[in-house]
Amino acid sequence: MAFHFSREDKVLVINGGSFGKRFADLCDIHEIPHVDLKLKHGKKLTKEKLYEYDNQGFSGLLVNVDETSTAVLYDTLMIGEFCKKNGIFFVCDCVSSFLADPFDMTECNADVMITGSQKVLACPPGISMIVLSPRGIKRVENSKPKTMYFDIRDALKNQERGQTPFTPAVGILLQINKRLKEIERMGGADVEIARVEAQASDFREKIKDMSFELVSESPANGVTSVRPKNANAYDIFLILKDEYDIWICTNGGKMKNEVFRVGHIGALTHDDNTTLVNAFKDLQRRGIL
């Protein structure tokens, strides 16, 4: 497993939805002792809840910073302080929050940040990016991985010669390079984060008087998780797709019929929000919403 947690470790997993659960599943597969800090869908992690796990011998903590299934943004500064106090190795999955929400590895004492080529970078999926703190690098260098194709120590060694251990998805790397230059040209990370935040705020303002409620107590910028008050969420997804040529995102599992999600990343504008909201209003006129 990444960062080589072992059976000698004890890992705390922040589990507030289907994406957080994947960390728990990884621990199960690799037989890593772990405890799930379970939260109800949409609920933010409070300091009081987190510190119920204080001084319990945890050596690692895994969190999906934007719990994408419910659009809950976790407080990494608070979690980082908890990890620092307890000497815990802090791993942040930022796939959905990278360049959508403020995040500073040094400020929150994160040891590892993981993201991907999709989401805000708006490139095809296929490239994972891992950023290590000095403590993270030391942990990798002192580990003995039992994998050939996901050996971070080997990747770091190959970086010394400007290469990767195996042939990567070169085309996607070129697209990432171009996209990063575009973000820099437009003003940098802070400007991109502000753009995504504005897109999210515009959508939420436009639906505030409609028959929806927001799921998240601590909304992330990259996505809005919406619960229709008087309709089936999956039916809305199908109607928008089939009759309006508009794609929103479904949820899985128990939330399939209760919640849908609307993204605010990539090449989207306020006009796109208006198009979607107009479709919602049409569904209201038709008695579907």
Rank of each mutant, 00 (worst) to 15 (best):
T76F: 08
H41S: 13
N177E: 15
A24K: 09
Q199P: 06
V13P: 03
D151R: 11
F5T: 04
D272E: 12
L12M: 07
Y234R: 05
R135N: 11
F89H: 03
K181Y: 14
E243A: 08
E184D: 10
G188N: 11
K138Y: 13
L37G: 00
A110H: 01
I176Q: 02
D101Q: 06
P134D: 14
G126R: 03
A231K: 04
S117R: 01
N278R: 03
N64E: 08
L73V: 05
E192A: 01
S211R: 12
A231R: 03
G266H: 02
E258H: 12
F19K: 03
P124Y: 11
S128W: 00
G287T: 07
S69Q: 07
T115R: 03
G266C: 09
E48K: 08
R285H: 11
E31N: 15
K10Y: 04
I265K: 00
C27S: 01
K84I: 09
E197W: 05
K43Y: 00
A71E: 02
D25R: 10
D104F: 01
G171P: 11
I152P: 02
I248F: 04
C249D: 14
F98Q: 04
E48L: 07
K178D: 13
E192H: 09
T68W: 01
A233L: 10
S225Y: 08
A169H: 15
R261H: 01
K229F: 07
T167D: 13
F260S: 00
L26G: 13
S117D: 05
C83H: 04
S6L: 10
A194H: 10
T147N: 14
A169L: 15
Q56K: 14
I239L: 11
D282G: 08
H30W: 08
E107F: 10
M105H: 10
M129T: 07
T269R: 04
Q284D: 10
Y149V: 13
L62T: 06
P134K: 14
L26Q: 12
M129E: 09
E205R: 09
V95N: 09
P125D: 14
F58Q: 01
V95Q: 11
L73A: 03
A267D: 13
F260W: 06
I265N: 06
N251H: 05
P33I: 04
S6T: 14
L276C: 01
E182R: 13
K146F: 14
G42H: 05
K85S: 11
T46H: 00
A71G: 09
F3G: 04
T76P: 09
D111N: 01
L156I: 12
N158W: 15
